[in-house]
Every structure is written in structure tokens, then in C-alpha cells.
Design a protein around this nucleic acid. Structure first.
Lengths: 205, 205
DNA sequence: CCCGAAATACGGTACTCACCGTACCTGAAA
DNA sequence: TTTCAGGTACGGTGAGTACCGTATTTCGGG
């Protein structure tokens, strides 16, 4: 809670207490190993044993820092790259670029598999839902920013439901990635952007 | 392939071969037990051992009919109810009712948890993706029907992209259910329907 | 038409395997 | 000497397999 970034669980040196201090490098090393395992083989290869072997530590060392594999996976998810935040001056262009960047990440990284797996665990572990909500929300920050700027510029009406608009943009993508397997093309992105803009009453330029 | 319904795997009596025929009741009994386990405790309580105990058969009897737990789960998913197909004469009313029915099922059955779990397994088992695509597609048949009828009545333009429209309607719902945990209200459904109708250029009535 | 052989399903049990998570012991830092 | 990190070994669960003895069917030969 006191460290620079506060992850799922207390960070490396909780309160500098009495006994032997934790190895200060282990936290990052474990997290990076977990992210790397995710990146190479998806969620299925992310096992605590594999992380421990990679870091050359024991499982206990991991479980002292993360209470469960899922917590570790959530933090590792945050290590995956985010699409760059565009700023082209128009919502339409920004949204196209941002969604395009998302698709690139979906193609180039195991982000989809990771998200799918985490969703699957969400069903089994409701106590985890809020953590996941937060993690997913964070991955939409860029999108939120683009929309807010558009409202600030007057491109979108002030009463725009940002949450709904984001869902209209991202929801169909996730549906195709997770459920139907339908292809995601540039044309689809264009159509989504148009539909969303029209839906919230943007001035058609 | 020759039976009335052809599930994931060959049905009860494949070709009436040499040996002892399979118990014709086991197939349904296993499937119903699996569906019931899903309905009571979600995906996590669906274990092959539990199904076997419920049906009073051996695991081998199950594995003789389904090659894996996942195949069984997919077929059990199809046992969950579908929302009733509305026919009120207008797309707007039909869509509202249909989506409302979906939400009811999401609230009253473990459908969400089941879908989440299956999505999670999709990441781990790409060979399964096409089967899942099919199963999810089937659960959108009603929606497709409503849209097609609207096109037939001229309420929607003939060039409407039905697939895209379905994604625009369902995608945001799934996003909230699976990722953000945001609430799903009647207002949201109304907004989705309006957005989708405007998006595909329906005559605003 | 009858009988044996081959083929296949059945229940049951025990097993392997993988993996999560924990108990316990050892040793280092304060 | 106390406190806590690290390592090892273990328990537990659940998927999927192997195998046994038995039951039930088809087929081929008498």
C-alpha cells in the first residue's frame, strides 16, 4: 500500500519489520517471468511451478507475495502492452487508430488468451470479479481519454454516455474474439466507429 | 450422424455393430445430469466424477460418448433455455423483448458462468474454438430471426449487416457481464436498441 | 436352428499426471 | 533470541487412462 505501485497484494517490503527482509528483486523477477510465460504459451503455461523454476525460487516465495495464481495472473496482465494513445484532432481518426492498435495487440500478444482465461476464472471465483473489473477498466483508459477529449472539443455532446459508447465500440470486438470467432477487419472498425458516433449524436463530418 | 440429433460426438447407436450395444438411455441421462450440475453449482461443480455418481455409471461410460469434459459441457450448454422468440410486429419492440428475455436468463440460470468458463477453455483449447463458435451462434438464432423478419417487412434496409447489428446489440451486454461488471438495466437495453437501429439506418418510428 | 467365437459395452477400481496450495523445517537478518 | 524468508515435501483435487470381469450382441460354422 505504501510502495510506488500498489498491486493486488502488499509489495516487496511491507513494513521493514524484525526478521529477515524479502529479496527485493524477487517481486519483479516473478512478475516478469509470469508475463513472459503468458506471452509465450498463453495462460495454460503459466503455472506456479513454471514461474518458480524460471526465477529459481520456491513456490513458497511466490505465495508469500501473491495469495493465488489468479492474483499473479492479473498483475501479469497489466504487464502486457497498451495501444498507443492517438491524438489526431478528430474523434473519428482517434478511434480508428486506437481500435486498430487494439487489434494489433490482439494479434501480436496473447492478450486475448489471457483475457479469456481470466474471464473463465471469474466464473469460478466471484471474489475475484472486482479485481478483474478494475484490470479491464484500466485497459480501456485510453479509449475513455479519447472520448473525453472529444467531448471537451465539442465533437461529442456533453451528455454523451461514455461508458455506453465504449461498450458499443469494444463489445462487438470482444464478442467476435471470445464467442463467434468472426473476423475483425478494418471495415468492421470503421463501421463500429460510425455506428458509435451516430449513436451518441456526433456531428457527422 | 444417423441419429435424430447429431451432437459433438457420435450418438448412442453409431452403426449397430457387432458387440453389445450402448445403453440407449445413458446418453440423455448423462447430458441431463451434466446440465443439472451446471444449473446448480455452475461449471466448477461439473466434474466427470459427479456426473458419473449422479447417473450411477462409470466414468468410462461417459468418456465413451464424449471425448472430454469440454465436449460434454458444450452439449450441456445447449440444454439451457433460450429466450422466447417475440413477434410484436416491430423490430424495436421485438428487440427489446428479446434482449430483456436474455437478461432474465442471465439472471435466473448459470448461463453466464457457463459461457465464461467455456470462453476460458477456449483459450486453452483452440481446437475447440469452432465448436464453441457454433454453440454461441446457435444461441443467437432468435436474434437473427428477428432482424431478418424486420428486413423482410422493410423496417430495416435490405443491405443491413445482420452480423454486425447482432454484435452491436449483444456485444455491450457480454462486455458488461464478462469484463466490467457494469449493471445491465432496461435503459441500457433501450439505448442499445436505438443505437443499433440508427446505426443500420432504420426508419425512426 | 444351435453353439461358440469375436466384438463391444458395462460397472468398477486403481492408476497416472498435472497443478494448486500448505505444512514444516532450516537458516539468515535484526 | 525472535522474526521472517526460503526451500522441500506433501496433501488434495480432478481429468483422463488402463484394465478386469461380466453382459450382451453379431457372425460364422456346424
Amino acid at each position: 500500500m505504501a510502495a510506488t505501485n500498489a498491486p493486488t497484494v502488499e509489495n516487496t517490503t511491507p513494513r521493514r519489520g524484525r526478521g529477515r527482509p524479502r529479496n527485493s528483486e524477487s517481486y519483479r523477477a516473478i512478475l516478469e517471468a509470469a508475463a513472459e510465460l503468458l506471452a509465450t504459451g498463453g495462460f495454460e503455461t503459466l503455472t506456479i511451478d513454471a514461474v518458480a523454476a524460471k526465477v529459481r525460487c520456491s513456490k513458497a516465495t511466490i505465495y508469500r507475495r501473491w495469495t493465488s495464481k489468479l492474483r499473479l495472473a492479473i498483475d501479469a496482465l497489466a504487464e502486457l502492452p497498451d495501444p498507443p494513445l492517438p491524438d489526431r484532432g478528430s474523434v473519428r481518426a482517434d478511434l480508428r487508430e486506437l481500435l486498430g492498435g487494439m487489434i494489433e495487440i490482439f494479434n501480436d500478444t496473447p492478450a486475448v488468451a489471457v483475457m479469456q482465461s481470466l474471464i473463465g476464472e471469474r466464473a469460478r471465483n466471484p471474489e475475484l470479479a472486482s479485481l478483474l473489473d478494475e484490470a479491464f477498466q484500466k485497459r480501456r483508459d485510453g479509449l475513455c481519454e479519447v472520448l473525453q477529449r472529444a467531448i471537451g472539443r465539442g465533437e461529442l455532446p456533453a451528455h454523451t454516455d461514455v461508458e455506453l459508447t465504449m461498450d458499443l465500440l469494444v463489445g462487438p470486438l470482444l464478442t467476435r474474439l471470445f464467442c463467434t470467432g468472426a473476423p475483425i477487419t478494418a471495415d468492421l472498425i470503421d463501421a463500429l466507429v460510425e455506428s458509435a458516433l451516430v449513436g451518441c449524436g456526433a456531428a457527422s463530418s
